[in-house]
Each structure stands twice: as C-alpha cells, then as structure tokens.
Write a protein that binds this DNA or RNA. Structure first.
Length: 371
DNA sequence: CGGTAACCTGGGAT
DNA sequence: AATCCCAGGTTAC
C-alpha cells in the first residue's frame, strides 16, 4: 500500500536552479539527503491552532475528494501536503477545531499566510451554505452531513497538471501519476512513509520526456503534459504568469484560454478554474455531476449523452439555482455522490444509482427520472 | 455544429 | 483464463 516514490531519471543539470542552494545538488537523492539535513537543523515546529472550526473546514471532505491529489492522510484525523514550498499537516482535535504543523518552510510567517490562502479561508463556507440551503431543499437536507467541504485555492500550475492527468481515468491511477510529477520537484520531507515534494515548476516539468512519462504509465496523457508545458512556456511573460493572470478574467474567457492547451477540454478547464483561478461559479461537469443534474435539476435530459452543449446547459442550471458560488455548491453535492462518502448520508438521502441494473432495461431509465 | 470512435492503463466483473 | 467494461475526458474524423 505504501509503495510510492517514483524516481524519474531527470537530468538535473540544465535546469536553472530555483534557489542558489540547489545549484550544487546533482541528484534528487542527494537533494533529499541535503534537505533532510537542513530540516533537522531548523527549530522544531509545533502544532498551532488555525482559527476555523469543523463547519468551515472538515479535512476528510476537503482533501481526499478529488480536488487535489498531493495530500495524504498521515494520521487518524491528520492530512499532510505541500503548500508552495512549505510542507504542512492539518488535523482535527477532539473538539473539532483544526490545528496545523509546519514541517518545513524557510519562512513560517509566510507559510501561515500561504496556508490560509490555499484554504480559501477568507470565504465563509457557513454563509454560502446558508444561501444554498434556502435555495434548495435537497441541499439543506444533505448539508448537515457534509459540513466543512471546502473548495481550495490551489496554485494554477499545480492544479492544471493534476487535472491533465485526470481525463478518462480513475482516482488511484491519477494519484500515482500526480505522485510521479510531484517527485520532479524539490524534496521536502517524508511524513508517515509518504515522500512530499514541492510541486515542480514549468522549468522542471520541461525536463521530462514524453517517453519517460509513458514509461511511468501516463498513456496518451504523456503528450498532453509535454504539449501543455511547451504551450505555456511560449506565453509572453511565462506560463505561470499567464495562468495566474486568468484569475482576473471572466469565466468564459478563462475556460476559452485553458481549452487552448492540449489535453484541456471543458471539464478539466472547469476544474482548474474552480480549484485554482477564483472562478467560484465554474461547474466541472463530469459523469457524477451529470447524474446529479439529470436527476435533480434537468430531469428532461435524462438518458441524453453528455455533449459540450449539454455540458454548458448543466452549468447554467447550477448557476441559476445556486448563484455566483455555484461551484462550491456543486462540490458539496458531488462529494455526497461519491461512494465512500455515501455512508455519511442517511439512507433516505442516499440515491444509489445502480447503473448496471438500469442499463439493459432501457424502459426503466426513462421512467426513473421523470418525476 | 452534433454525433462517434480511438486513446493508455489497471482493476474488477463476466 | 480470456474478454469486457469502466474510470471525475479530449481529440480527431
């Protein structure tokens, strides 16, 4: 189970050193040793309170639910992951408050600020859910069971490459692939057997070849990664800057811009927009959301196939129901739909969609949703 | 423009 | 044991 640690053979030579102290570090193995030595010299960090309660941030409904694949569960109520160049653990205390521990960082004050930003803490989840609940009785019904399911504000580059791995894929393999990409970045530290890395810059990502990615099991997504790195590097001012600048645009332009990148279609674009570009009304329409929509929102579309046009119909339906933060509502509804989370809901709220039994009986399909 | 078939891979079902 | 199907899609006809 704890078999991670892809070691891509990336030439560390031609890469411009992000920081001077990396210049003399030839292999990633050596880098790791060095980082460990550094870490052991720095003063031990301690758990500190984060000023949010469980209703604003519930870790199991925020990290392992598909918006990021870089965080790992490292304890009963603890999750650990990188935030920029910092490595941070978060955990719930018995009173449901949240504490954080900075494992490594060159600047602890900065780490706290970056963490709060990453967690989108300026946005009040309780207030949003209040309005969702008054707009939709089903949301009101499931809300008490999904409290603290928060939308993150990730780094755009990190978010983009994670979701580039997600197309037509399953969680386990996406996690493995993201782990491979992550290991191209600076090693941070090992916690509970998991190796953590700062997510690689575009310059680092540029050093990996399509063949190496294919060997690592990326399949046809290998050429998407390579192509997107190249496309970004050709942007005036740099790809990272170009991506970040999308934060100031309106959603349609953001989607349009992202979709020019190879491997990025409407769904992946919406994920990046929502999870990293402040596009709170973006609705990633995947198979799960399609299920929700055709069941609860647009029953007349039941049985139809998911085309780009219908994709935007669904997004519109969500926005007209939940408003400017529809993406946050969608996230909660989506989580309620995930098999592992369904057990959180009482059975009368848990619409088991038994696809296999429905398929094969076309007549049933039409009937089921027209209510 | 809307509908379809490939596209890599690994795990689970048949 | 051999196939088939599918998984948080995108792309090319």
């Amino acid at each position: 189970m704890k078999r991670r640690r892809p070691m891509p053979s990336v030439p560390a030579a031609s890469s411009p050193p992000p920081t001077p102290r990396n210049r003399t570090l030839p292999s990633s193995k050596t880098r790791k040793r060095f980082a460990q030595a550094l870490a052991s010299e720095s003063p031990p960090s301690t758990w500190q309170p984060l000023t949010v309660g469980r209703r604003e941030l519930f870790l199991p409904l925020t990290f392992p639910t598909g918006q990021t694949f870089t965080w790992k569960q490292t304890g009963a109520t603890t999750f650990t992951g990188p935030v920029n160049s910092h490595l941070i653990s978060l955990r719930h205390l018995p009173d449901d408050s949240v504490s954080f521990l900075i494992h490594c960082s060159s600047d602890h004050r900065r780490a706290v600020a970056d963490l709060r930003d990453y967690l989108n803490l300026d946005i009040s989840l309780a207030e949003l859910w209040e309005s969702f609940s008054s707009a939709d009785s089903r949301f009101a019904a499931i809300a008490p069971y999904l409290g603290g399911a928060r939308v993150l504000r990730q780094d755009p580059v990190e978010c983009l490459f994670q979701f580039l791995c997600s197309s037509n894929n399953n969680i386990a393999r996406i996690t493995k692939m993201v782990g491979f990409l992550a290991a191209l970045g600076n090693y941070l530290r090992t916690v509970d057997g998991f190796d953590f890395y700062e997510f690689p810059s575009l310059e680092r990502l540029e050093l990996v070849s399509e063949q190496e990615l294919r060997n690592a099991g990326f399949g046809y997504r290998a050429k998407y990664i390579i192509g997107t790195v190249k496309a970004l590097q050709s942007k005036p001012g740099g790809g990272a800057h170009w991506l970040a600048s999308l934060r100031d645009l309106e959603l349609p332009e953001v989607i349009e811009g992202l979709c020019t990148l190879p491997g990025v279609g409407p769904k992946v674009a919406a994920c990046i927009a929502l999870f990293s570009l402040d596009q709170h009304q973006a609705i990633p329409v995947d198979t799960h959301v399609w299920q929700i929509a055709t069941r609860d929102l647009l029953p007349e579309l039941a049985g139809a196939r998911l085309t780009p046009t219908l994709c935007s119909r669904v997004a519109e339906a969500f926005v007209s129901k939940y408003g400017k933060f529809a993406g946050w509502a969608q996230t909660a509804l989506f989580i309620g739909e995930l098999p592992p989370q369904k057990t959180l809901l009482p059975s009368h709220l848990c619409h088991i969609k038994d696809i296999k039994s429905i398929r094969g009986k076309e007549s049933v399909k039409k009937k089921v949703t027209t209510e």
